[in-house]
Nucleic acid binder design. Structure first.
Lengths: 145, 145
DNA sequence: GTAATCTCTCTAGTAACTAGAGGTGCAAGG
DNA sequence: CCTTGCACCTCTAGTTACTAGAGAGATTAC
């Protein structure tokens, strides 16, 4: 059995984060030692590694919650799993498209900065006047998140 | 003079967001009508449009705060402005690189899903066992944010 | 035995808002 | 003139996924 610190090292997830995952129910309540310290077995470690890996792939915790409960039902169809992963893929693609557009605009701004006074700075100018901007980036707040 | 609702429509920023910007000091405290309602002039509208545009380009509010105070000093060198914009460009490029790697991994996962049972689902398998993953994506939590 | 390191709980803070409750202002129709 | 209804006010709390810190107890190392 591992203490929370050992589990933290083993899974690559910080100690407070592990406690947080328990609090929101992503991890089951841990067993406790005589002195009330959390103890973890192999199952908990696997589950935590699963979570970490999914987080690294950008899955939100709610999606991970769903994936975990699906992975607990190995007999069912994996269509739901596929749907979650595909949704995540779409989200990632949308964010990339959005960021690539931003990158182009920022590059344009930065390369046109002549290095003079702020009064003539292209960066400030573009930010202040939307009509100077190359493309229309409105109504896409959520793509940034 | 515009009421907060009109300003919201004019600048494309939601009403509670405008109040929030005032609260955190990005916008100066608005004048008030006899009935205590906020009133805005042209300067406030320009400032809010500047903020909105910078937000659309992904600048964090703290950077926008700096850009605003720089734009209030038109005589100074625009080097600081350029530095903020360049930092933002770098941040965007880093996020793109990160997301492109995630996209590849997700595509690999999704296309290998055979549509069978969860027990054999490649998605669940990869998430559970990091060694099945194509590349090493560790220690890059901040690139996602 | 004691000092150092973990671990415990609890609260509060982060970014950038969003949602809702409960109450006032104001403009237009009847 | 009055009322209806929308816009506005303040304040609190919630969102996501944690992170930081305080103050106290548990373990481990020497």
């Amino acid at each position: 059995m591992l203490t929370i610190g050992k589990l933290s090292d083993a899974a690559g997830v910080k100690v407070p984060t592990i406690r947080y995952y328990e609090e929101i129910g992503l991890l089951p309540e841990a067993e406790r030692s005589a002195g009330n310290q959390r103890l973890y077995g192999r199952r908990a470690q696997e589950r935590l590694t699963f979570i970490r890996h999914a987080r690294e792939l950008g899955f939100p915790l709610e999606a991970i919650r769903d994936l975990l409960s699906l992975s607990d039902r190995p007999d069912q169809s994996c269509a739901a799993v596929d749907a979650i992963a595909s949704a995540q893929l779409l989200a990632v693609e949308a964010r990339i498209a959005r960021l690539v557009a931003l990158k182009a605009e920022l590059e344009r701004m930065v390369t046109q900065c002549a290095g003079g006074r702020i009064a003539e700075c292209h960066v400030i100018e573009v930010l202040g006047d939307h009509s100077l901007c190359a493309h229309d980036h409105s109504a896409d707040q959520q793509a940034l998140a």
